[in-house]
Amino acid sequence: MTPPPRTPPRSLAPAVLVMGKGGVGKTTVAAALATLEAETRGRAVLVEFGDGESGRRALGAGHRGVEHLVITPAEAIQRGATPLFGSATLAKLALGNFAMRPLLRAAPAVRELAMLESVRQVVAARPGVRVVVDMPATGHAVAWLRTAKQGREFLASGPMFELCDRVARELVAPGCASIVVVTLPERLVLEETLELCESVARDPGLEVARVVVNRVPLPLSREGLADARALAASGGALAGAAAALVSVLEAREAASEGAAAAMEVFARGPHAVWRVPLAPVDPTSRDVARWLRAEGAA
């Protein structure tokens, strides 16, 4: 059987949702994508949930053209509720109600939905500008994306239904949002990433447009490894120390071979794969943007 011909990567939708498990460098990649977008098209938005520190750090000093928006749960709920209740005052009255406060604190889906609605509003208010969203870690992010459709199914009617419907049609839909998954070149992490791609495609039905394999180790010299092996086998005074060096170099070689094998698996799939090399200390979003550009992103 011949492999299907590789289709060139489709262009990204107005909203780019960056997902991945914790610690894979999601924030840096999201900031790099926004930086790249701003360099190419003059403007971009980076949306972050939380205190905004991570995105600010990842963007660094030179991020001209990137509008950095921070959305907190409380603001999102207020923002999402205002059109529902007709006015900010009525929304405040309802949200501050003695029964609503504990309900909102303990009912997470409401916050998630409100955050997505905020993103939808950001995208709608900036036509033609790409909005890159640094999503929460994997499992949680998939559940987030499903809230709109689930809400739509069981609400059936009313303003809350309409909100869910809007989010489902205008944000969590093919053509409106592209998923970018960030992963690491380790076999089991990559397996989880493949599962994530399938899960997102099944429900909410979004295709993963790009997979960014972050921190791809650069192999150290093969000659050095061969020499270290020879020294370890020599039985001399340094044989033990050389054996320790061999195990470090072998670990690195295994990591880069594993990365190469995984790259092949992903390359057979429908999404473009971009690699970002491993740096010993924090790369800036501009470094990562430069690497992504070299991989064909722009």
Binding site: L90, L93, A94, N97, L155, A156, G158, P159, F161
Partner: peptide, 16 residues
């Protein structure tokens, strides 16, 4: 409270 109830019922719909 009644006002809030009215608002919530209107916004969320009877199913929720």
């Amino acid at each position: 409270t009644g006002r809030v109830e009215h608002l919530l019922a209107r916004v969320t719909g009877p199913n929720l």
